[in-house]
Amino acid sequence: MVIAIGLVMGLAGFALDGVGEPVGAAIRRREPELRLEPAMNTGPGILLALLGGFRGPVADALWLRLYSSWERQDIAGTRALVRLVTSVDPRPAYFWINGARMLAYDVAAWRMAGGSASLREDARRQIRHEQAGEALAYLDAARPIHDDSAAVWMERANIALNQLRDFEAAAHHYRRAWEAPGGPYHAARLHARALRLAGRPREALAWLVQLHPGLPCDDDAAAAAAVLDRIRELESELGVPAAEAYRPQEQ
């Protein structure tokens, strides 16, 4: 009888699969597959919890462990847990952003503090570059899920700008952040700044000129007046004739 029951369950479930599959497919598109391999070495509790479908809470618990490593300035532990958290649950952008910050800024600072007191500037720069590279590579792993996350693109841009001084890359990333759904206005302004720092003031001016008409006057975050000031600065810097200067539309 048990076999008969199993058979009927199988057939009925086969029919029901058509009902549930579109939802499952939608979830798979939204959420990455569960990866068990990284959790294999973390103890049976975590593995069992993952098998039980408690991905979010497991990642949260690992994040608490990561926080503890971070407080102790444990470089190896922080590095390992940053990756483990996002491999268990890569859905929250928060994990990626804060994990990248730890790798790019905190681990770099700990490495410098742990080295010789008279660490030369080129050695410091080397550490900053290494850590920024590690953080950016880490954020690259988020792209399959967070390719349209403005916050992740902003983080990428900030690391490129602050740690690598790679203005071209920063300009690109700020632009992606601005173009992402819900992209903040300051991403657009920072794109122009990065272009300027990269030695491309004309493109920065052109960008701001096409940006300004679309900025709402009644939204402080849009900072339309500040953008106009930047346009004037760039026009002045580039010696744009008054006749060719940007004229904002009356609103």
């Binding site: 009925a12 086969f14 699969d17 549930g20």
Partner: peptide, 19 residues
């Protein structure tokens, strides 16, 4: 495989509103 796998429900889809 479909028949065997379908004998058990998939619980992932019940988390569709969990985010």
């Amino acid at each position: 495989g479909g028949a065997v796998v379908s004998a058990f429900p998939r619980f992932d889809i019940f988390g569709v509103a969990d985010g």
